[in-house]
Amino acid sequence: MRRLLLIAIALCLAASSCKASNNGQTVAKVNGETISANRLALALKFELSKYDPKVADDTKRVDALKKSLLDEMIKKRVLVKAAERSGVALTDSELSEFYTYYKSRYTEGTFQKMLEFKGINYDEWKAEKKREAIIEKFLEKELVSKIDVTDTEIKKYYKQHMKDFSKGDEVRARQILVAYPKLASELREKASSGENFASLAQEYSMAPEGKRGGDLGWFSRGIMPKAFDEACFPLPAGEISPVVKTEFGYHIFKVMERRGSHSVKLEDVKDKIVARIKQQKMEVMFDKWYDELEIDADIHINEDVLKNVTAPKEIK
């Protein structure tokens, strides 16, 4: 079953410092709009960074990843075109608000670092955000607005998923995320020497929460990436982790507080439950609805180009 294209899905691009080998080639066209082999190659590189390096040598898995990534790119373009045909459009005010909302999550310095880390320029970032905004508005109009969730459904879901709302040990932590290991080590040394961790995060971190001092809020095991849990949960409050490398970059964590297991009241998770139920209903509706949109779309995939798309190599 096709995976639901969630509202505001962000197609991850590769980090900077890479060489692409697919210049000038088109891997697909969707209603006349091209998808370049370069773009797919960069997305493939980022996706592969999440796996064991041996996966890159598994031709079948790499081919499956390429097709999955291309399918998501095609879906987004099909949805945007369908949105335009249905009369969904963004006002200048809506688009400006959308840009401002996402950009406000960064300081100017960390925003530029984020673009550099993902290997995109400002115009590419704006184009992607515009596409996401149109899709969000379209899905809201065609699907989300037509989904109702009753109090009975909410209570039933809560009772059936009590384990999900009984939290184990939690930590509240801050993080600093940077692209380079040397900078991460320097910042860790500064923080360990007594410099304000939140201020360092505001100045240097390229993560979205950097603007608020790197505050990740409270989280239990399994909510964040595994590397976050492994770095944070062994630490007592007030301690700073070693530098941690992930596919996102180089992290430094500081545990601010800890608390033991506890149950969460229904009223505290009602919005989350409503969102989950809506997503479940939306997934049921989405497949048939999207299939009808795809039938009307003009989609051409260059299988020869797709076959030869490879993830770009790092610059040494």
Score class of each variant (00 low, 15 high):
E33Q: 12
I35P: 03
T26I: 15
P53K: 05
N23K: 14
E33V: 09
V55T: 07
N31E: 09
N31C: 05
A43M: 15
N38V: 12
G24E: 14
L48V: 01
S49I: 02
L70M: 06
A28I: 09
G24W: 13
A37F: 05
A64R: 04
L44K: 07
F46M: 14
E72Y: 05
A41I: 08
T59A: 13
S49Q: 09
N23M: 06
K60I: 05
K75I: 00
V62N: 01
N38K: 13
S49C: 06
Q25S: 13
S21N: 13
K29V: 08
Q25L: 15
S49P: 00
S21T: 14
E33I: 08
E47V: 02
K50F: 13
V55G: 05
V27M: 12
T59V: 09
K50A: 13
D71W: 03
D71N: 09
V30R: 05
E47C: 05
D63W: 00
S49K: 07
S68M: 11
E72V: 07
S68F: 07
K67E: 15
L44T: 02
K75G: 01
A64F: 03
I35Y: 13
E47S: 09
R39K: 15
N23H: 14
P53C: 07
K60C: 04
Y51K: 11
T26V: 15
A41K: 12
K50L: 10
L69S: 04
Y51V: 02
N38F: 08
D63A: 05
N23L: 08
P53D: 07
N38P: 02
L48K: 03
N38R: 12
K50N: 13
T34H: 12
L70F: 01
T26Q: 12
T34Y: 09
Y51L: 08
N22F: 05
I35C: 12
A41C: 09
P53H: 10
R39P: 01
N22L: 09
I74M: 06
K45F: 10
V27I: 12
E47K: 14
E33Y: 04
E72P: 00
T26N: 14
D57N: 03
T59F: 05
D57A: 07
L44F: 04
P53L: 08
E47Q: 11
N31I: 03
L42P: 00
K66V: 02
V55W: 06
L48M: 04
K67W: 06
E72T: 07
V55K: 14
K66P: 00
K67C: 08
K50Y: 13
V55Y: 10
T34S: 15
D71L: 05
E47D: 10
S21A: 13
K66R: 10
V62Q: 01
L42S: 14
V62A: 01
E33C: 03
D58H: 01
V27D: 14
L69C: 04
A43V: 08
T59S: 12
T26M: 11
L70G: 02
K45I: 02
I35K: 11
N31Y: 05
V27H: 13
A43N: 11
V30M: 10
K54Y: 07
A56Q: 04
M73V: 01
R61V: 00
K75H: 06
N38L: 10
K60Y: 10
A28W: 10
K75A: 08
D57V: 00
K75E: 13
V55R: 14
T34V: 12
E33K: 14
D52R: 11
K60N: 12
L44R: 09
